[in-house]
Design a protein around this nucleic acid. Structure first.
Length: 516
RNA sequence: GUCCCCAUAGUCUAGCGGUUAGGACGCCACCCUUUCAAGGUGGAGGUCACGGGUUCGAAUCCCGUUGGGGAUGCCA
């Protein structure tokens, strides 16, 4: 058999019945990477044939998520293409024409069984443990009788007439290898519903064939649908594409990843402060490997190296810890400007503005004060870029996501007030000698107003342990709690510089009151 | 019930007949250190699901078993 030299054309075909989830995103990434690696085309097609559950909002959201991930498509919604339209609901004309063709070829037949009858028979057969699909009772209705019943307006579906004499359906899956299904196992499934709409297994073939898709790369859950679809291609007389199935993504409990495992949508990860390239990196690794040892890479490396024969067959458990680690490594290398750009939307969400007077509790719930409006936050960031960028070194080694950076740095945004962690206060502020320590710290810093910098602050405060004859740890932890409200915080001297003398002074005075 | 697929440490994986079974996340310890991290160093963790073959030799090839997943819709 000669292999036709064919242009690589792959597609991602989500149904807009929800937002883009992790599994779908990975399928999209693999298709995209395969296309880019092989100089082919990546096509986006929206399978919106289920009017009950499909919404245009979902479509818009899916597109947004794909773009955010950094994927681009050569044909599809928004970009068009010569094989459009790319919304299934706009392709209905082609389905009707193909049905006429199938009727002419005697490859389909009308079925007058009602859904209720079908369900009843299926149940009975299941009960008797003998169910193996539709019993084909309408297959032998004569042409004349069928025509008469259709003419009389009797509701009917159109079923594929499986060629009983065909051998088993075999195909070489590009991930799973040789796969074979007994023809006896396949029933005459419905192609066109009684309302005239086409079913998935029918449209998907027609669309893929008409769009000249060369490789169908999709979820494992379609492996068992593949023989049916091969039969449709054959009935249609259209060439069968190559298939590559991707194993499922599982939750920590080993069950298929779903909402009950927590966040599963791409958008949710975006909102939690993950970066697109980190998510892309992690997802690419979930079922594919570059060489067995490389774990950190960018989209370019992916599109330069992706290949289906390095795709794993085992289902993979989604490990958020590793995603966090990859995201953390991204934050460490991204630099202050990019970090601030990513931080701003989160600051806006919480109304955090430099020098603000809002007080937050540990969960970042609003305790007191007003939320700053996003316009003034953005303006302040523009006007004081250096101050905001100075936050980066404080959290770059600590925050795994941008969202984590918010509670970590919220003390920088509360002006002259501090939210105190009770245990930290009783441990460090109400301890013996705390008031003296804080008083001395205040005095030491007060002389620095003209030379306020991390290094001068550090120089002065470092003198305290010897002066007071107290262990450094005791001193610095007391100051830390006084200024940050907690025994755990980002580096102290840098924090003091960012707080400024006035806020520092106010916070120290208040802490001294508590200590007394 | 029937059919299909899968099986290497807690997790993701490398491995394609000869390796002390490699890497990464996570975990533990130590170092660094004013906290938390980060970083550095070291470590624990695998009878390669189980049982049979084939072979001089099997994680790798074959058969069976078990476990898991999927399909079996007028959903996609």
């Amino acid at each position: 058999m000669t292999e036709m030299i064919q242009e690589v054309r792959v597609r991602f075909a989500p149904s807009p019945t929800g937002n883009l989830h992790i599994g779908g995103a990975r399928t999209a990434i693999y298709n995209w990477a395969f296309a880019r690696r092989n100089g082919g085309k990546f096509i986006l097609r929206i399978e919106d044939t289920d009017p009950e559950r499909s919404t245009s909002e979902n479509t818009a959201q899916i597109i947004r998520s794909l773009k955010w991930l950094g994927l681009d498509w050569d044909e599809g919604p928004e970009v068009g293409g010569e094989y459009g339209p790319y919304l299934q609901t706009e392709r209905f004309a082609t389905y009707g024409a193909a049905l006429e063709d199938l009727k002419a070829k005697d490859a389909v037949y009308p079925c007058f069984c009602t859904p209720e009858e079908l369900a009843e028979r299926r149940e009975a057969a299941m009960e008797a443990k003998t169910y193996s699909g539709y019993d084909r009772r309408c297959r032998d209705i004569s042409f004349e009788e069928a025509a008469a019943r259709i003419k009389a307006g009797e509701p009917h579906t159109w079923r594929l007439k499986i060629p009983l004499d065909r051998g088993d359906v075999t195909f070489n899956d590009l991930v799973f290898g040789a796969t074979s299904f007994p023809i006896t196992q396949l029933d005459d499934f419905i192609l066109v519903r009684s309302d005239g709409s086409p079913t998935y297994n029918y449209v998907v073939c027609l669309d893929d064939a008409l769009m000249k898709i060369s490789h169908v790369i999709r979820g494992d859950d379609h492996l068992s649908n593949t023989p049916k679809q091969i039969l449709v291609y054959e009935a249609l007389g259209m060439p069968t594409p190559r298939f590559a199935h991707l194993s499922m993504i599982l939750g920590p409990d080993g069950k298929r990843l779903s909402k009950r495992h927590g966040a599963t949508s791409v958008e949710a990860y975006k909102d939690e402060g993950y970066f697109a390239d980190a998510l892309l990196n992690y997802l690419a690794l979930l079922g594919w490997s570059l060489d067995g040892s490389t774990t950190l890479f960018d989209a370019q490396v992916l599109t330069d190296n992706f290949s289906l024969d390095r795709v794993s067959k085992n289902p993979a458990v989604f490990d958020e810890k590793k995603l966090e680690w990859i995201n953390a490594s991204r934050i460490k290398e991204m630099g202050a400007p990019a970090f601030v750009d990513a931080l701003v939307p989160h600051l806006c969400d919480y109304g955090l503005i430099r020098g603000g007077s809002t007080v937050y509790d540990n969960e970042l719930g609003l305790v007191d004060g007003k939320l700053a409006d996003t316009a003034s936050i953005k303006a302040d960031v523009e006007a004081n870029r250096a101050w905001y960028e100075a936050i980066y070194p404080l959290v770059a080694e600590r925050a795994r996501t941008i969202a984590e950076a918010i509670p970590m740095t919220s003390y920088l945004f509360s002006g002259d007030t501090v939210f105190y962690d009770e245990t930290s206060v009783s441990k460090c502020l109400k301890a013996e000698g705390a008031a003296v320590i804080l008083k001395n710290a205040e005095e030491a810093l007060s002389g620095l107003q003209q030379s306020w910098s991390t290094s001068s602050i550090e120089e002065e405060l470092r003198k305290l342990p010897e002066q007071l004859g107290v262990k450094p740890k005791v001193i610095f932890q007391a100051v830390r709690v006084a200024l940050c409200g907690n025994v755990v915080s980002p580096p102290l001297f840098e924090s003091i510089e960012l707080l400024g003398w006035e806020n520092t002074e106010a916070r120290l005075k208040k802490a001294i009151e508590i200590a007394n």
